[in-house]
Nucleic acid binder design. Sequence first.
DNA 1: GACATAATAGGAACACGTTTCACTTTGTCC
DNA 2: GGACAAAGTGAAACGTGTTCCTATTATGTC
Lengths: 199, 199
Amino acid sequence: MTSVNSLTVDELGSAAQRDRRKRILDATIALASKGGFDAVQMRAVAERADVALGTLYRYFPSKIHLLVSALAREFERAEATLRDKPIPGDNAADRVIFVLKKTTRGMQGDPHLTEALTRAFMFADKSVQSEIHIVGMLLTTMLTRAMHPGQTELTDDDVAIAKVLGDVWLSALVGWVTGRSSAEEVGQQIEVAVRLLLR
Amino acid sequence: MTSVNSLTVDELGSAAQRDRRKRILDATIALASKGGFDAVQMRAVAERADVALGTLYRYFPSKIHLLVSALAREFERAEATLRDKPIPGDNAADRVIFVLKKTTRGMQGDPHLTEALTRAFMFADKSVQSEIHIVGMLLTTMLTRAMHPGQTELTDDDVAIAKVLGDVWLSALVGWVTGRSSAEEVGQQIEVAVRLLLR
DNA sequence: GACATAATAGGAACACGTTTCACTTTGTCC
DNA sequence: GGACAAAGTGAAACGTGTTCCTATTATGTC
């Protein structure tokens, strides 16, 4: 529980450790935002965060862990923001579309960052399992909440639909990152999937 | 059109070039099958294919290009096999499930190869666009044919459904590769998505 | 068949993720 | 406040993807 490289923000550890962790993730986001996946070089992250390379690796055992952890932090922020205000829309489909498009728009506003985080997420292997799982849960939570605001009991179908929508959204994002589809096409893909699943 | 590192099998080029290309892809598959993504080392591929490192890079400009091209060749084979015999199943849902599960089973029979090819596909960036596109088209074609055998005219909804199913399948595969879900769960995810979409 | 051109071989060199190690600083417990 | 362990520093070194260069070998043209 005192593990330093755990993911949740409210983790134990000294103030200095929390500060280092924050500086590292800030540096990661800044570099990713400027030049994408390739620009997030471990030596550069360490220098910008003002820690030694060895310290960086003590906090995050690999570049992929680092980027997926940064993604998890961004998702936690987005989820927290979304949790406060009610989601506009008269039905589940509209609310889900609102959430997904808003998130997508946010990511497309910073293409390099999105490229870095998406590719890291998709490239991860078994060793990043727990970090990946956190992101997956946050995504499912966001979607089920959009489908049924304020509802705690969910049917199996609800969860299944949320997972399928999450899959579609991730695949669409990968398509956008790889230049196969435009921003509008990503929006369309999501709308189509929502329409097919939540009619 | 005479470009050596194009993807289609029936490409132009001398017999020697076709032979080299085949040897390289064979070596790639063999190494991937034995040790996964990490085992596909460019020096090892070159040595096993009996070509110089520079030649390997002339044919495939990066490790990702190489692996995605190998994936495309495997997909072309699978698609060709599937094209011949009729797909069992009384309705679209059953036939799609048959195709996806058969393909999934094939991939899970060679976990290392699947890991290598899936991770390469997901890690690809814009420079691999055309190779990635070929794989995507093959997947969509396989699925629409399973939905409507022998039918050339397809509605927009058919294509949209096929794309969503392809997305779910890819995401499920990534989940399996990252150790988040078991083989059975992959099968279940697919069944659920098909049931939701093709009811 | 001789020549021009392209393709290949062989290998050095470079970049960046990762590991390692000797040393120093920081934090904790008595 | 001293001793000890944990954490951090700084730098070297290693592995593998990628690039580059020169000599050699095929290939196609007249």
